[in-house]
């Protein structure tokens, strides 16, 4: 009975893995297959990838620029805010934290429509890539702020700062020598999240973009709708190549708990031997 249940769990898990992974592999294969309808025996080619690059390199480049601009703004706005929120444990701060996640909690369509209603008539702004950047900033900012707040609370920053203050460091000296270096992993995790989200963002972007400000996912939707399967697949392949390394780094960065736990047990061992 017990063995049967374990086997059932394993089978379900494996089926889920297949469900998630098979289409990824199929699409990667399709992107380099000469004619997918005839299978990979029709031959492998980089023709589709090349064609995608010719058609969409502008969109891909713009997405990277937008992601970097979004990152810069979320760093400047989100890091100080996350730090300040971690030290303000009053109701106003809780309220602000709740308010700030609204753009993530409610559908991107609503936020995008709201931006269009408010700023749609400012043509120069509306037609520039900054319009998209603004949408991405609103959507990604909570992730940066939360990441920074979490690490500020996690490393007991207040006591560290009191220590630095007792040694004569002024507010800005403390901020640069103690606060920033110690919250760097949180900033890094937040930054990777922001870039990953921005590069893949579609819900807001589709409403905010114009024909001259096409981004990578907007191009993807266009390719899926109007191009042959191989081109859509080749484009998806390029997206995977860009996004999977980001995700891998993000997961290794945001998993410091294991390492810290290791250090703690290590320290306990040393305590016993000291």
């Amino acid at each position: 009975m017990k063995k049967f249940l374990t086997a059932l769990q394993l089978v379900i898990t494996l089926l889920m893995v297949l469900f998630l992974v098979v289409p990824v592999l199929m699409s990667m294969l399709a992107g380099v297959t000469d004619n997918y309808a005839h299978g990979w025996r029709s031959g492998l080619t980089l023709r589709w990838v090349q064609q995608v690059w010719e058609l969409y390199h502008g969109a891909i480049g713009l997405s990277i620029l937008i992601a970097l601009a979004t990152l810069a703004i979320t760093l400047v706005v989100g890091v100080p805010a996350g730090y300040a929120l971690s030290r303000s444990r009053n109701r106003l701060a809780r309220w602000l934290e709740g308010l700030m996640v609204l753009p993530v909690a409610i559908p991107g369509l609503a936020s995008a429509l709201a931006l269009l209603v408010m700023y749609g008539s400012l043509t120069a702004f509306r037609t520039s890539a900054w319009f998209i950047v603004v949408g991405h900033v609103i959507f990604t900012l909570p992730f940066m702020v939360r990441s920074v707040t979490a690490i500020c609370l996690g490393c007991d920053l207040k006591t560290l700062e009191e220590g630095a203050a007792s040694l004569g460091a002024t507010f800005w000296q403390r901020f640069t020598t103690v606060v920033l270096p110690n919250i760097r992993p949180g900033i890094l995790a937040g930054a990777l999240t922001v870039v990953t989200l921005s590069i893949g963002e579609f819900n807001l972007t589709w409403m905010l973009h114009t024909p001259t400000t096409q981004t990578l996912p907007v191009g993807l939707a266009d390719a899926y709708a109007s191009m042959r399967l191989e081109i859509g697949s080749a484009y998806t392949l390029i997206f995977f190549v860009m996004i999977v390394p980001l995700l891998t780094v993000l997961q290794s960065v945001s998993k410091p708990t294991g390492q810290q736990r290791g250090q703690r047990t290590n320290r306990m061992k040393q305590d016993q031997t000291a």
């Binding site: 490393c155 007991d156 006591t159 560290l160 009191e162 220590g163 630095a164 203050a165 007792s166 040694l167 004569g168 460091a169 002024t170 103690v178 270096p181 110690n182």
Partner: peptide, 20 residues
């Protein structure tokens, strides 16, 4: 006068050593 200008030396309960 704020703490940074009082010229005190302080040892905290959990030491507050800078991990960086």
């Amino acid at each position: 006068r704020s703490i940074e200008h009082r010229q005190v030396g302080m040892v905290f309960q959990n030491y507050a050593l800078f991990p960086n």
